[in-house]
Structures are given as C-alpha cells and as structure tokens.
Design a protein around this nucleic acid. Structure first.
Lengths: 253, 253
DNA sequence: GGCACTATGTGTGTTTGCGCACAGACGCAA
DNA sequence: TTGCGTCTGTGCGCAAACACACATAGTGCC
C-alpha cells in the first residue's frame, strides 16, 4: 500500500479528545494484519487491543464439532479486546483476520489505565461495546430466522462498509465459514445475486455492482446494526484536527 | 409467597460491598413481575434497572416478520438495563417476564451515578455484562448449529439454575417462542426427553427428573455460559453479612 | 357437571440446508 | 505451455425444521 498510515483511519481513535489521544498515541504500534492470522485464541490472555484501519477481523466462536460462526465483525469503526476493560481479561471467542490490512496495537495495560480514568475514552469504549452487542444479538436472530441469501447480502454490505472500494478479496469458502454454513450454500446464494446483477465475482474477488439492490435483498439486520452503531457513536466528541474531520466526513454518520 | 423478600436474593446486589449497598438500598423498590409483562420495549427509554430475585426475564429480539428469538435470560444472577450504564440509554431488544416472581427496581439515574463513581459496583456490572455477552454469543452459535432437542435441554437447565425447585411453570408455546422455533418442534423434542425419563410434564408444568441426563443431552453451550459466569463473578467482593453468605452458598460457584 | 378455553399430540407435505461426490475452471509457477 | 492446486459449479439423496390442519386432553369457571 502506498497510502500513508494514520491512527485517524480508525474511527474510535479519531474520535478521542486531544488530551486522551496524546497520551496513548506514542504507544500505538502500527502492525500488519495477515489474512487468517489469529489475534485471540479462545480463553487466551489478551495482551493487546487492536484498532483496525484497513483490515477486518472476525470474532468467531468455534464449537466442539469444529463448526464455527462469526458473531461480529470489526473494522475501522471499532476495536478488538473489549474483554480487557470489561474486566474479564479473556473471552471464549476467537479473533481471526478476515481481510488483510493494517491496524494499531496498544498494550492492554495502557488501555485499562486509560479506561479507568473514567473520561471520554471510557464513555466511547462503552458505547462502542453496546454497538457491538447489538451486532452480536442481531447475528443470533439472523442465524435463527433468515435465509442464507439474505445473510450473505447482509454480510457483504457490512464488509463493504469497512472497505474503501467496492471489491472484496474473499473466497466462498471463507464466507461460508464466517456465516457458519456450507460452501455450496454460498455458491448457490452468490450465484443468485450474480444472476440478479447485484454482484460479480471471479475466483476470490467479489465486486458489488448494485449496492442498493443488495440492501433490498438483505434482511433488516443490516440496517438495525448500522443504525445503532451510528446512534451510539454519533455524539462522541471529535477532535478538531483535519485528519479526524476528513476521516469521519467520509461516512454518512 | 410466604418467603420474606430480600435484595440479597439477587446475586449482584448481594455481592455489593457495604458502602455501596447502603447507598442504593433505600432506593431499591420491591416489585412483582407478572408473567408476560414487558419491562422494556425495543427503542424505548430505560427508566429503571431491574434485579430479579424470584423471577426470570427474557431478553429477546423481535424481527419484522413477527418472529422472535431469545438472546439471553436473566434471573437472580443478574440484572436488566445494561444499556443505561453502557451509555446507550436504550436497546433494540425487548425484555419480557418469562417466569413470574419478584425483583428489585432501581432508578436508572441512581444506577448511573453509582456506576460513574468507578468503584466496585462499576467493576461488578461490567463483569456481569461480559458474562451476558458470552451468553448472547453462545446463543448465536447455538442457533446456527445445534438441534432443537439440544437447545431445549440447554434452555431448561439455564432456567432451572434460576429457580429454587426442579419444576418450571411453562407452556411449550412459551418455550417455542423463546427459542424461536415452532411449538410442534418443542412438543416433539420434549416428548423425546420425557420418553428418555429426563423430564415429565403436564399442561404447563415441567419437572426435571434427571438433571445429569439433561446435561448430557444439552449442547456444550450450557456449560460454556455457566462456567464463564462463574469465572467472571467468582472473585467479586462479597459483603460479610449472613444473608449474602447464605445466598451465595447455595450455588456451586 | 358441563362448557369453553387452551395446551398438547400427531399427521402430511414442503422447504431449506446438509453431506458427499465429482467435474470443470481459473491462476500461478515451473 | 504444461501442470498442479485451489476455487467454483452442480447433482444427487437425506434430515431437520417448517406450515398447516386437526384430534385429543387437561383446567378452570360458571
């Protein structure tokens, strides 16, 4: 990537008030996040939190039979490692990089200290956590009641929201294991979407052609989650430097 | 009920250190919670938080088609109204009384004040929230991968853990809408469990005969959630009065 | 006791998604 | 170019859960 990296590419970091940002900034560590890399193992001690910028990470549960399901995705709108400030220090979920890119890493110790100051950072992290909880709940309901094709549409839209272009690098196999369904199920659903002219793909590359059509195809879950995220993070206080303004302005929140 | 009521019947309240308990105790209001009563409407402003003692409340999502799914249950181990201290003030979920009983109500304003002091109350509420999140995630995975019969077993066990006896007052219809499946599906699954000698029931009353058998029948989700709750709330500081000791001692945490 | 209401049992047919098997097709690398 | 590995398309049969319909059996109420 030739694009210069900046913590402001992550919405949460960009939203921190100056004093709080200055305190953590020197400790933010830019790290590449490779496709398939495991950030957290279930039950493992969380040493760092991650603020994705150009990467996307799946939080997923893996059950005894080996099957898995994504319970939430995290991109530049959020962070990973919530269990740290929630006090649990670990979670039963895994975190796996779903789209390669970069992110900023911060030591868990520092984050906790900052959280415990009880300032805007705390307020923001808690509100983000609530948005994440909404996403998890909606996923639970979606798993129960919606068809694969609707879920695929939702998932594509959610992924798209975290990327700069309308193309995602993603095999059907990966999508299937994220949604917790068979690969063939995705082949069929994606085939329908392609025939409807909404997407097009070739071997690991999916392009979204008609976003609006995809929205119409998706279940309500997409809109609910997006709206709730927007509501919860809209009124957090934004830093007044140009970078933050630029980043946040690119989104319709 | 002839049993005397006490805030200590709720594990979270019982775990508060004396100073914090004394501050909120005068404002705790004992309220009856009637079967089917709606505590929170989706999107509605949360005025109070609830600490169930003998009642059980379902947090559920209702989708456009009218179908619903429980995403978590809350009994005397927890509380309702998390969105208040998370900063959202409202959630897209409903909260409906699933087993009639009592609980203590506290004004949202007071709870927020106490939370913002940053003391043990905050620590405890956040840890409980993480346990609740675990429950929600596990529900999401369970919805995806486990059969109705396993889910029913899990649900019965979770409900049982929140009740003093081994009998639950519950129609198949209610269970079905909690699990988000058809009533006939529950009839069939419950029939199997009954034939296996694990439960017995008659018109709205289910008795668990062999708890261990039910545990063997249930999916892993039950154990994961229970273990995580235990881990997260084990080391919270308990008040040293007899009531708290009694209440906490009745559970194998 | 009789009645109405509601809970439960059961049957049939349909749909969705799964499991497995395999064929083709694309893309990278030698 | 050739070849191999991986990704994608497709065609079965099968099982789980759904939708709908209706029969039967408790329970409470008058």
């Amino acid at each position: 990537m030739s694009t210069p990296h900046s913590p402001n590419q992550n919405h949460l970091l960009a939203a921190l008030p100056p004093a709080e940002f200055e305190r953590v900034a020197p400790h933010l560590e830019l790290v590449p996040m490779l496709l398939g890399e495991t950030l957290y193992e279930p039950g493992g001690q969380l040493r760092h939190v991650y603020f994705p910028t150009t990467s996307i990470v799946s939080m997923l549960y893996i059950i005894e039979s080996g099957l898995s399901a994504e319970i939430a995705g995290v991109g530049n709108e959020g962070m990973l490692g919530i269990a740290l400030f929630m006090g649990g220090d670990t979670t039963p979920s895994s975190a796996v990089v779903q789209t390669a890119g970069h992110g900023y890493r911060l030591s868990g110790k520092l984050l906790k200290e900052e959280f415990n100051r009880g300032g805007l950072m705390q307020r923001m992290l808690l509100r983000y956590t609530q948005a994440l909880v909404t996403q998890m709940c909606q996923t639970a309901v979606c798993n129960r009641h919606h068809a694969i094709e609707q879920q695929l549409s939702r998932w594509l839209l959610q992924t798209l929201d975290r990327l700069p272009s309308n193309e995602l690098v993603m095999t059907q196999d990966l999508i299937a294991s994220a949604l917790g369904v068979r690969r063939e199920g995705i082949t069929e659903a994606a085939g329908n979407l392609q025939r409807a002219g909404l997407i097009s793909y070739r071997r690991g590359h999916i392009s979204v052609l008609k976003r609006s059509g995809l929205e119409a195809h998706a279940c309500e879950c997409y809109a609910v989650v997006r709206k709730e995220l927007s509501r919860l993070l809209f009124d957090v206080q934004y830093r007044q430097d140009t970078a933050a303004t630029r980043v946040t302005a690119t989104h319709a929140w």
